[in-house]
Amino acid sequence: MKEILADLNTWRAEGRQVALARVVNVEGSGPRDPGAAMAVSDNGDVIGSVSGGCVEGAVVAEALDILETGERRMVSFGYSDDEAFAVGLTCGGTIHLFIEPLDW
């Protein structure tokens, strides 16, 4: 989260609504460790990253939804036949993200 703090501050100063997505757990091979963070503003701007680029698009969609509903939640991405995993990690691991509005 360190590396996105400066941008987060700018967004907050501009009064934007922001959703914060953080990697909290990685199973198997994953591109980023727990603590990797990405933030999405209400107009769809993105800072930071949570994977090697595999799931960022899906995270943006989740984040925008969370900004609308205000409901924080866990979201997982991984290699699976389950249709719930519309987006996968090519490396074969699973990452668990906690996504929430930055309202604290």
Partner: peptide, 13 residues
Amino acid sequence: MSELYDRLREAIV
């Protein structure tokens, strides 16, 4: 409202 975030940010900075 942003007391937690501000405290965290201050320590990191």
